[in-house]
Structure formats: structure tokens, C-alpha cells
Design a protein around this nucleic acid. Structure first.
Lengths: 337, 337
DNA sequence: CCGGCAAATGATATCGGTATCAAGTTATGG
DNA sequence: CCATAACTTGATACCGATATCATTTGCCGG
């Protein structure tokens, strides 16, 4: 019996054929159809071909819901993004899209779907039914991590790998990034460096940490200029504030490119030059930075690769394989600043 | 009978309770549970409450696949994004994320899921099973539109509303954007304006169109500087090229902020000033533009709002309601350039 | 000529919900 | 006191796929 009712003309109404329909057409049982389309070795190759062609001709489409119900899994990974424009992470940040691209590519290739949600929307039933979870951004004090871990679903987090974390974390090597910049400054002869950023973000904290540690080797102690926002204005403000307080500095490591560009503007405003008087290095290597005047030096991370790694880790977790946290290398791109 | 097998200790193994389990616990039939959780007016309010509490206590989770199978729909909208980094549309563009945020917010609120895919991945079964489709970017010569329309699923496209389009298009009013800039230039006394961009993108074409038309009213004919890439370098190159050819110009309308910033750099390189000698206006109003020196004037579009509108339109289409294309207003943000 | 094994196919149950229609209960009113 | 309506609840079937176990067929050696 076919569920695709037929009208007087005999044409299909509304829905496409099911396996049962194909079975009737091919003169076999529906389980054989299932096997044929699923590449099971249990069917005769000729039968398989015949059924394949029929499926093609009649535009057969697998009903995912039925399959998932039977198999008791969703073949879906939910990606939870912080998309609300906020002061510290605007939604124009380049990073989510790069990550999403990598994630999407890898999951789709593995036959999984990407379910995109915001943190607010993550209570939806569909999210809870996901086979796995990718969390982009740990949230302040890990609040997001703690909240979603409770779902009891395999989860991988993008961010900094804090000690004692029981979940899998993928992120770029922020500590390395910080130390690369430190070495760079030292090599340039800079001895009074400043760090601008908000270390209450774990990732920023690591950058600061690597920066401080690498400078410490040379007996240098950088100044921390705490700034909550990641905007250019915030960077400008930081520099102006330093200038007002007559702080002596010759290098700035800003934990985002936007901050860095703002800082450069501030430096120029107070009559100093980049890179003549002050060296500046940003973070993220936004495309715009390369075209900035002067061309911005920055720490580069490969978002796409990060996304792919995230995806591979969840898939492994879903399959029950052992999975460890991992950090991706970063590299310092030296341009004019 | 419950599918949730129990181990010797009597605790639940692996899976959560089903409606049948709750039914047993509550001493009712499972259809009553279904009604209670679904807010059906057919159940006694007291019964509803009792079942609700049980569901809460036992951590009941609706099985989406089962529901969707029975209801013959997926409660899912696929969003197809061009995420491959390409020369003309880098994946660092602000627009997809803004749109995605709006889409996600609106769809989630309506109980729908957002299935994110790239164009390449859109052949996946899950995408084909979606109740609706949102296409971000029409593609060159509408190729993406034509390809996905064949799926026969309700579809809404973000882009320019070309005449004769049979599908629903949502986009911002590019024509208006162009004319706003034209009027702005005219008011400033600029009489030799240049347009920089690639008009083979429908959206850019409209901007150019509005620009030319509004200038035409004043008897002014702008110069078209065709540039395929949307990068700052491309903008700089455009200006240098104009200068080399000794073209006389006093205003530039760049069809993206990155182009505009690059153009400003070019203008400064050849020894002219902004806005003294040349006025410049960009498009998209990226956050960075406001902090650029000099602060970039730009045409502002509200991506978030656009995403929400896209979502509302697909939902309406899915419900079979009549839906028309719509363009969102834009506004010119005048800053220093 | 028959037991036995491999290959191919099928019958049936099942995943977890919801629509349909039937049935039981209580309230209302003549 | 009974008929009728309004409220609740339930039994059953079904959505479309797949796992399991059974069955059929063909081929082999002894």
C-alpha cells in the first residue's frame, strides 16, 4: 500500500514515493529497497542497480525523520553561537563565520547536519536531541560550558583550555601567540611594552600569560592596560589614557585587531609615530589589517582549520572514541607596525 | 511497556522516558500525555498539570523525529550560505552573521530549527527535507536561485529583487542607497563623482542604478570604475588608476566599506585629502568604518532586521499564506568623509 | 540423490509520537 | 427520570524507515 494517494489523473499528489512504493514498483519487499539504497552487501548487485534507477526516476527522497526515529539518533550536531551583538564581542567578529565554515564542511561531509542556534534558543527540543554539541565561546566564567554540559550530550568547546576542564576544548595556542609577540618586541629592542585587553576572557588571559612569561625571561615586565571592549575606540582611549598619565611605552600588544587599529590612531593623535616610536601588534589578523595604513602586524589563527577540528572531535566523541583537547598553532604575521 | 530498559539497580539505562512511560506513571493513556504536553484544550487542566510535573521530574524530552515523522514535516528551515572564502565576497563580510542572527532568533521563537549549510552541502538529505529554504546570496546570474528552486520547497532569497523574479526576495533598498549618496554628493557641490564596484552583482547594480538616476536629474553623469574585488587594495588600486589616467574626480561612492577605506588610502597617497578634495561614501556601515580615520560615511543596512524578515517570510510561505517580496530601507550615515 | 552451506529475500516488530473516531462520564434541562 | 450536550479519555492505526530472525533458492561435495 502506498501512502501517496493518487488523484483521478493518476498523478502523485503532494508527497514523493516511499520505500514501500519503490518496493512495489520493483516487485520486492521494502526491506530490500532499504538495503539496496543503503549499500548493504546483502542484496544482489543487479537488484541494487534496478532499485537505484527506480529511485532516481521517481525522485525518491529518504525520510530523515523515519530513519532517525528508528536508529535513535538525530545525525545532527548543534552549534551554539553567541550572536547577540554585545560590547565585547560584536557580531561582526570574523571568527564565528570562519569556524562555522570549517564545521559545516566537515560535518556535512560526514553525513551530519549543522543545527545553528543562539544560546537563548538552545533550549529548543531539536537542540536537545542533537547527537553532539559544539559550543563557540565558553562564556564568562565558563557559564555557557556549565550550562550545556548538563544536557549530557557529547560536547566540544572552542576556547581556552583551562586546567581541570573535564570537557574537550579546541582552541588556538593563545599562550604561544603572546610569547611570539613578546619575542618580536624584544628583538626590536622594545623594553617598555603594554598589553591592552580584557584578561577575564580565558583566551585573552592566556595571551597575556604567554606575553608576560616570555618577557619575564628577559627581565621585562609589561604594563597591563585593562580594556573591556574590543572596539577601535576602546583602543584609542587606552592610548590616550596612557599618554595622559605620562606613561612611558614603546610597544603595544592589543588582543584584537580592532583594538590595535584604534591604538595606532591614538598614538598618531598624540603626535607619536608607528612604528617609529611605538611598535603595535594585534590579534586575529583580520583581512582589513593588511590594508590598514600602516599595515598591521598581527597574530594569525586559522579559523577554518579550527572549525574542521572541532567537527572531527565531536564526531569522534559521538562514535565513542577517546578524544583529547587540542590547541592549534598560531603564527605572527609581521607587517609594517 | 517501556522501551527504557532497566538494569539490576532499577535505574534508567541510556535513554530518557517516553510518552508511554509518562502515561504509565500517570495512569493515563499516551495520547492524553501527548495532549497535555501539547496544550490541547481536550485535557482536564488538573490532568495536564499532573502530567506536566511528571514530565518535569523525569526529565522527559520530546522525540522530534517521531513527531516530525507523524506530522510529515521537519520543522526545519535550511539556510544556505556562501561560506567559501572568495575574492569578491570574503567570509569575513559582516553580513552573513547579522542575517543569521536575525533568522535564528525568529525561527527559533516560532519553534523551527535552523539548518546551516553551504551550497556544496545542500544536496544532503536533511536539507531536502526542510520545510523551507533561505538562500543568502543569489549567485552570479541567479545560478544558486535556479538550482535550489528546483527542490520545490518554499524559498526566500536575500538579494536584489530583479524584475520578473517568481520567487520571494528580501533585500535592502540598494537603489535608494545609491540615490541617497548621489543627493549627498550633489548637496556638497560635488559634480564629478565616481562609482567603484562590480555591477554584475545584482545588488551592486541597483546601487549604481540609483546613483546614476539621481545624479541624472541634476544633469550629472558619474564615471563607473569597475572593480571585481571588494578589498581595500582593490579600492586603492582604483584610485591610483584614476590618478594615472589623470581623471578629474571629486567624489567616490564605493559599493563596500572596504573598498572605500582602500580608496581613501589611495587618495591620500596621491597627495589629495579626504574630505577636502574628495568626498567618499562606502556601503554596509561596518563598525570599523566609524573608527576609521577619517571616520567613514556609509550607507547603513540593518542585517538583523533583514534576517528576521527573511524568517517571517519563509514561515508565512510554509503556512501557505501569500507573501510578497520586500525591500528594507537604508539610511546614509554621514561622518567625516 | 541428499545433507549442508552460502546468497538473496522476506515477514514482522519496532522506534515515539499524533489523528481519528469511539466511548465513558457528568451536567443540564424539559 | 430520561434525553442531549459538553467534557474527558482511550483504542487503534499510522507516519517511513531498519533490525532481527526466518525462509527460499542454488550450488557443492560425498
Amino acid at each position: 500500500m502506498s501512502r501517496t494517494s493518487k488523484d483521478q489523473g493518476g498523478k502523485l499528489v503532494s508527497a514523493g514515493p516511499t520505500m514501500a512504493d519503490l518496493a512495489t514498483l520493483a516487485g520486492v519487499s521494502k526491506i530490500t529497497v532499504s538495503r539496496a539504497l543503503g549499500d548493504s552487501p546483502l542484496v544482489n548487485p543487479q537488484t541494487r542497480e534496478r532499485i537505484r534507477e527506480l529511485a532516481q526516476q521517481h525522485g525518491y527522497k529518504l525520510n530523515i525523520s523515519a530513519r532517525n526515529l528508528r536508529l535513535r539518533r538525530s545525525h545532527t550536531v548543534a552549534v551554539i553561537v553567541e550572536m547577540k551583538p554585545s560590547s565585547d564581542r560584536t557580531m561582526f567578529d570574523p571568527y564565528p563565520l570562519g569556524l562555522l565554515g570549517g564545521i559545516s564542511q566537515e560535518l556535512t561531509a560526514a553525513g551530519y547536519s549543522v543545527l545553528l542556534t543562539t544560546r537563548q534558543g538552545a533550549t529548543a527540543a531539536a537542540v536537545q536531541a542533537a547527537d553532539g554539541l559544539i559550543l563557540l565561546g565558553q562564556g564568562v566564567h565558563q557559564d555557557a560550558v556549565l550550562r550545556f554540559r548538563k544536557l549530557g550530550v557529547p560536547m566540544v568547546v572552542w576556547g581556552a583550555d583551562l586546567e581541570g576542564d573535564s570537557h574537550v576544548v579546541v582552541g588556538s595556542d593563545n599562550q604561544l601567540g603572546g610569547s611570539l609577540v613578546a619575542e618580536h618586541f624584544f628583538r626590536l629592542g622594545r623594553r617598555r611594552p603594554v598589553f591592552i585587553g580584557n584578561p577575564s576572557h580565558p583566551e585573552v588571559y592566556d595571551r597575556l600569560n604567554g606575553f608576560v612569561a616570555a618577557l619575564g625571561v628577559h627581565g621585562i615586565k609589561p604594563l597591563l592596560m585593562r580594556r573591556d571592549e574590543f572596539t577601535p575606540d576602546s583602543g584609542t582611549g587606552a592610548v590616550l589614557s596612557l599618554h595622559d598619565r605620562k606613561v612611558d611605552f614603546d610597544a603595544i600588544f592589543a588582543c584584537s585587531d580592532l583594538l590595535a587599529m584604534g591604538a595606532i590612531r591614538g598614538i598618531q593623535e598624540v603626535g607619536r609615530s608607528v612604528p617609529g616610536d611605538v611598535s603595535v601588534v594585534g590579534y586575529d589578523d583580520m583581512p582589513l589589517g593588511a590594508s590598514f595604513v600602516p599595515a598591521l602586524s598581527s597574530v594569525h589563527q586559522d579559523w577554518q582549520e579550527g572549525g574542521m577540528l572541532l567537527a572531527r572531535k565531536v564526531l569522534a566523541l559521538i562514535l565513542g572514541e577517546p578524544v583529547a583537547s587540542e590547541t592549534l598553532p598560531v603564527r605572527l604575521v609581521v607587517r609594517s607596525t
